[in-house]
Design a protein around this nucleic acid. Structure first.
Lengths: 179, 179
DNA sequence: ACAACCATGTAAGTAGTTACATGATTTA
DNA sequence: TAAATCATGTAACTACTTACATGGTTGT
């Protein structure tokens, strides 16, 4: 389970509130780890109780922004976790199940959905490339920057894969409609 | 949620018992959808209750193999589901979180884990390629075979991606030890 | 007939999702 | 000052995981 450590990582990069963390999970960290705001708030509470992070603004009820930052104990825990061993999360993609289902049952209207997916992945690919052009314009960089760039490039490669895959699938499903 | 439809697909391809389905989930269907035997047995019960599949051997308690096959209602449901629209499952990979953590905290011993992952993915890649050579030796094939081949090729592309990615990561993490 | 294994299943716990609620801040 | 939005949070539910249990089958 990586959510607590994803949050620790994000807070190690820069302190922030729950909503700020939630929007970071739609970008950088979010290329490979997703979380909703409900998960994030719950987990921030646990992390604070564990003594790994602290919240800055004194007391406040709801609706008030509350900034968190990582504590030394949190950094220590994160460092310990980095070297841990864990098997890769098994892949899960319903589209593949649908393809095998259509393979065995015959045409059942999968084309439209794949075209929709193609557009989604193309859009995300464009976005990631913009981010890359903006954040990593130069080639030789620090170890930190090279690692962050590597993760972004992995996101780009994934989206590229899906774009190409969708095109191939459309070629098989409906060759007549393709130019 | 795709597990019930993954099972329906697998049973549409060929009837089988729970344990047979479980082992298929380590291959073909399992390239992109994973399930443990506990999930599978539970879900088979639900599918039978829904009237989408039936179990053949009359009455029998535990320890006795029970073969299931898909019913017309199950095929109808599967066909309906194929054309449904669903957003891609968000990616989740702890290794990426670890890389960003190591990027921000500095060297913390991630290399060994990446080498382990590299070996795992290389092994899986070799396995998939064997399966490809055995099951899809010829090029022009039926629509069904082309779709099944496409899904396998996607699995191959994924493992290839991870192998290349791991090598790049090692280049950044420990350039001295690479030849 | 005993051991080892195989197939099926139960139980408890955890992570993640969906729907909804409430107080604060900004905007019309 | 009312409406819309933002930030935080609660509650209920579902999928998935881990650990364990039991009845059959197979091999010696």
């Amino acid at each position: 389970m990586s959510l607590p450590h994803a949050l620790l990582t994000s807070l190690a990069e820069r302190p922030g509130s729950g909503s700020e963390l939630a929007s970071r999970f739609d970008r950088s960290i979010g290329y490979f780890w997703h979380a909703t705001h409900q998960q994030i708030y719950r987990e921030l509470g646990r992390l604070e109780e564990a003594g790994w992070i602290e919240s800055l603004p004194a007391e406040s009820g709801r609706g008030r922004k509350r900034a968190y930052r990582i504590l030394p104990a949190g950094k220590k825990e994160l460092r310990r976790w980095i070297a841990e061993s864990e098997n890769p999360t098994p892949l899960r993609d319903e589209l593949m199940v649908r393809l095998r289902a259509e393979a065995v049952l015959g045409p059942a209207g999968l084309e439209a959905e794949i075209e929709r997916r193609l557009a989604l992945h193309q859009e995300k690919l464009d976005l990631y490339r913009e981010i890359e052009a903006r954040d990593f314009p130069e080639d030789p960089a620090s170890r930190t920057a090279r690692l962050q760039h590597l993760v972004l490039k992995a996101g780009i490669a994934q989206e590229q894969f899906w774009v190409e895959f969708s095109r191939e699938a459309l070629d098989i499903l409906g060759p007549s409609k393709r130019k």
